[in-house]
Write a protein that binds this DNA or RNA. Structure first.
Length: 883
RNA sequence: GGGCGCAUAGCUCAGUUGGGAGAGCGCCUGCCUUACAAGCAGGAUGUCAUAGGUUCAAGUCCUGUUGUGCCCACCA
């Protein structure tokens, strides 16, 4: 038999992983004989370094894919990375800044070359880190969102959508980041409540002594005011509608208009209207044909429309305007309020609404099938609440601004001639499609990163080509991601999937929570509270990391990171390792597989059969935390603490094979059960802890070359043995009772005791007779005597010094010196407990409602318990009387 | 402002068709028992936030309240 090292060495993981790689176990093939099962990795950004969030996300995916692989599916877990347009560009801009360069000074081409260099150098970092986690991705199929193939898919999708009128170019108010100098989508704007100031001013009504008061949080936008709006039915203002007010800072007269958007109850009931810098005002402007005066440059400074304020930053302009209004006697007051500020999620700078000519995806039609997929139940979320988020987002969806004013990304395939006609083409066209002009200029903008990510589930499989991969693996099965990605990505993948493939890209979405620090805070760079998963892998191994990520957690909830939990996982691996060493030490070369015969063997076989069923179900429903916990509990508690201990006498007593053929046969069957049980447990654990299970598996058997591709245990109802389970439970109860007495009486471990068991009935007598060998071993008793069941001798005659305790199917007597008073107190307590239980049951059974409406099986169960407790109570009374 | 979570043992959390409250860590006691002291055995600890309701039966379903967290949102 092979041997295992004295302690488990997680540094062996690397060697095991390279073996799997070289054997090609992760590789997926198009195999018509098998059912495909595919997961597309949420591609990490090339700017990312592996953090705990990735560790959790990828652990979940690997657990699912490894289980499915063992269950006989043709599994594909496709890995890759995302070009992360803005993040990457920001990083590279920083890098070149150190060399005194800027994007502009380098020029577009040179800059992009530089980004590609950066990508080659750092883009693979996270991929290599994923390997350290044990991820069983098909690395031959690794993709990058800016691969030639994927880039082609992006252009293809753009052109098709454009041709259908689903992509258009238009002037809209968009979110502008003055720092990154680009538009950003609504989803990229973070809203945060913060303290702000609400400034109250008034404008003079032209040709009238009246003034109109209003309030604003952004006084600088007064430069772009083109109206004052009031509610049409507001009696305070009806007379003024149609008149004008004078905006002093820019010497402009603007009309007073009526619009129902204005809430007469709020503030003064009058609103300044700046169509070029506020979404609501933009709409009011549309309705009333107001001019849109853009007052801001792309960098956030005031432009020529700001007159004397030109060149000032938005903040400085604000201060000066307040001053000027004050000088003119038009300033009223300033209030401190809390209000939401929109900031860019990448750089935290306040977003400025600006009017720009941008590219948009028309969402109304595209959203319909995506919404229907959820409402009809075709697309399932692991929790309904996540589905509601998805649904809600689709219901309020607005057109998607997809153009970005940055260089790193897929350049928009639009070419403009001198006359301004647009030609859309994959490759630069030679002439304008409208007028034939040959002087063409490509659109400067690139596409939102999420445009390419939205195509990920099929672009990675070769779309728009009709590849065998695409045919076989699409649609994929499950998508695993974090909740904040639902609208960025999940929604967009689904509608693109319907648009181009005719069906949703996956059937199940598993949303998981985030890993927080031990105080419940988000891990962040600024707090410095991040945990490096690689540090854990380095120190404890990936198995420990992986188990810690999922064990006992409901994955949809946030979890806190505790080193104590890491240590628990480490302790568990150690336990498993040592138990396996024990099993190996006690197997013989000739140990064969044989069916369980002995009660305890049937018990553990029945138990692991039940475990198999449970774990398979929990994995199927993606309740990985529960699955992990069940396996851990089984291995540690039932297998190690009970079964291994129970069979020790059978293994030890016949070590030399000289205790007779019957004893040898008993040893052999114990060995067989030990091994098969352990192997099954290893298989169930393998998706969670792939490395240690492989090592042990290879030592335990020689038929198969890896546990990875071994067959998932089938649960088999014929293996269920409720009678054996119940029997062993009562034996455990007896052992615990004896141990308890030993502890209570402080019997030193070296002191052997003897135990007398008085069974209540013949079947109990048979049970204890058959089990007395290991009962003695487990309870550290030198002799166990099982009496005849119907003998009514209360206590061993002639000896007053006996501790007695009543079990459900027997009474135990342990000859020990006793303190009569203490014994009385103990038995009285037992009696009280039984009386309480009986009272509870009798209360239930005498309740007409319960007897009339509860299921018959439950009532029968209660009656059974009632009888059992009554019998036990009688015995306790007898023991008390005998004292 | 709207929506969605969470509140269970000292701490962190499980508990998915409603049927006698669980784990890990921590704590107390005793053990280096030849697989494992990263271990073994034994033990203590809960008005399952709060007030109602539905039910024979509620940690579990419904409503209100309080505390707490997240997401969404154009109220000047």
């Amino acid at each position: 038999m092979k041997e295992l090292n004295r302690t488990y060495d997680p540094s062996r993981e690397e060697e095991i992983y390279s073996r799997w790689l070289s054997k090609g176990y992760f590789r997926a093939k198009v195999n018509p004989d098998k059912t495909p099962y595919a997961i597309m990795i949420p591609p990490p950004n090339i700017t990312d370094k592996l953090h705990v969030g990735h560790a959790l996300n990828n652990t979940i995916q690997d657990i699912i894919i490894r289980a499915k692989r063992m269950q006989g599916y043709e599994t594909l877990w496709l890995p890759g990375t995302d070009h992360a347009a803005i993040s990457t560009e920001v990083q590279v801009v920083k890098a070149i800044a150190k060399e005194g360069k800027t994007k502009e000074s380098m020029g577009r081409e040179a800059f992009l070359e530089r980004v590609w260099e950066w990508q080659k150098e750092y883009g693979g970092t996270i991929v290599n880190q994923l390997k350290k986690l044990g991820s069983s991705c098909d690395w031959d199929r690794e993709r990058f969102t800016m691969d030639p193939g994927l880039s082609d898919a992006v252009l293809e999708a753009f052109i098709r959508l454009y041709d259908e009128g689903k992509i258009y170019r238009g002037e809209r108010l968009i979110n502008w980041c003055v720092k990154c100098q680009t538009t950003i989508s609504d989803a990229e704007v973070e809203h945060e409540d913060g303290e702000g100031r609400l400034y109250h001013f008034k404008y003079n009504v032209v040709d009238s002594p009246d003034t109109i008061a209003f309030a604003t949080t952004r006084p600088e936008t007064m430069l772009g005011d083109t109206a004052i709006a009031v509610h049409p039915e507001d009696p305070r203002y009806t007379a003024l509608i149609g008149k004008s007010v004078f905006v002093p800072i820019v010497n402009r007269q603007i009309p007073i208009i009526a619009d129902t958007y204005v809430d007469p109850e709020y503030g003064t009931g009058a609103v300044k209207v700046t169509p070029a810098h506020d979404p609501n005002d933009f709409e009011i402007g549309e309705r009333h044909n107001l001019p849109r005066i853009n007052i801001m440059n792309d960098d956030g400074t005031i432009n020529q429309n700001g007159g004397p304020y030109q060149g000032l930053t938005r903040e400085a302009a604000r201060t000066r305007i307040i001053e000027e209004m004050n000088e003119k006697g038009l300033y009223i007051k300033t209030e401190t309020i809390t209000h939401a500020k929109g900031t860019h999620d990448r750089c935290n700078v306040i977003v400025e609404p600006l009017i720009k000519l941008q590219w948009f995806v028309r969402m109304e039609e595209l959203a319909k099938p995506a919404l229907e997929a959820y409402t009809s139940g075709k697309l399932k979320f692991n929790r309904e609440r996540f589905g509601k988020v998805y649904q809600h987002w689709l219901e309020i969806i607005r057109d998607w601004c997809i153009s970005r004013q940055i260089w790193w990304g897929h350049r928009i395939p639009a070419y403009y001639c001198t006359a301004g006609h647009v030609t859309i083409a994959k490759a630069p066209p030679t002439a304008c499609a409208t007028c034939g002009d040959t002087k063409l200029k490509q659109d400067e903008d690139t596409l939102d990163t999420w445009f390419s990510s939205a195509l990920w589930p099929f672009s990675t499989l070769g779309w728009p080509q009709k590849t065998p991969d695409l045919e076989y693996f699409y649609p994929t099965n499950v998508l695993v991601t974090a909740p904040e990605i639902i609208f960025f990505w999940v929604v967009r993948m689904v509608f693109m999937g319907y648009k181009f493939m005719g069906e949703a890209p996956f059937t199940d979405v598993v949303i998981h929570g985030i890993v927080r620090d031990d105080q419940g805070r988000k891990m962040s760079k600024s707090l410095g509270n991040g945990i490096d998963p690689l540090e854990i892998v380095e120190k404890y191994g990936a198995d420990v990391m992986r188990l810690t990520m999922v064990n006992g957690n409901a994955i949809e909830n946030d979890t806190r990171f505790y080193w104590e939990r890491v240590e628990f996982s480490r302790n568990f691996m150690n336990k498993l390792w040592n138990a396996s060493r024990f099993v190996l030490m006690n197997l013989d070369e000739e140990t064969a597989n044989e069916p369980p015969v002995a009660l305890e063997d049937r018990w553990i076989t029945s138990r692991i059969n039940a475990l198999t069923k449970e774990v398979t179900e929990k994995l199927d429903s993606h309740e990985l935390g529960l699955a992990a916990q069940k396996i851990v509990d089984f291995i540690w508690d039932e297998f190690c603490d009970w079964y291994v201990e129970i069979v020790k006498p059978r293994l030890y007593a016949n070590k030399n094979g000289d205790a007779g053929p019957e004893a040898l046969a008993s040893r052999r069957s114990a060995q067989a059960t030990l091994r098969t049980t352990l192997i099954t447990a290893l298989k169930l654990l393998h998706p969670i802890a792939p490395f240690i299970t492989e090592d042990i598996f290879l030592a335990l058997q020689s038929e198969e070359e890896t546990i990875m591709l071994s067959l998932w245990p089938a649960h088999d109802d014929t293996q269920a043995d409720p009678a054996a389970e119940k029997a062993i439970e009562t034996v455990k109860e007896a052992v615990r009772a004896i141990r308890n007495i030993r502890a209570e009486k402080q019997v030193p471990p070296a002191q052997k005791i003897s135990v007398i068991i008085q069974p209540s009935d013949p079947s109990a007598q048979e049970l204890y007779t058959g089990s007395k060998g290991f009962i003695g071993f487990l309870a550290n008793a030198s002799a166990v005597e099982v009496r005849v069941s119907n003998s009514d001798i209360a206590a061993p005659e002639g000896n007053k010094d006996v501790v007695s305790t009543v079990l459900s199917n027997a009474t135990l007597y342990i000859p020990l010196e006793i303190d009569t008073e203490k014994e009385k107190a103990r038995l009285t307590k037992e009696r009280q407990k039984l009386q309480q239980e009986l009272a509870r049951i009798e209360g239930k059974l005498s309740n007409q409602g319960f007897v009339g409406k509860a299921p018959a099986s439950l009532i029968a169960e209660e009656r059974e318990k009632q009888q059992m407790y009554a019998a036990m109570l009688e015995k306790v009374e007898a023991e008390l009387a005998a004292l």
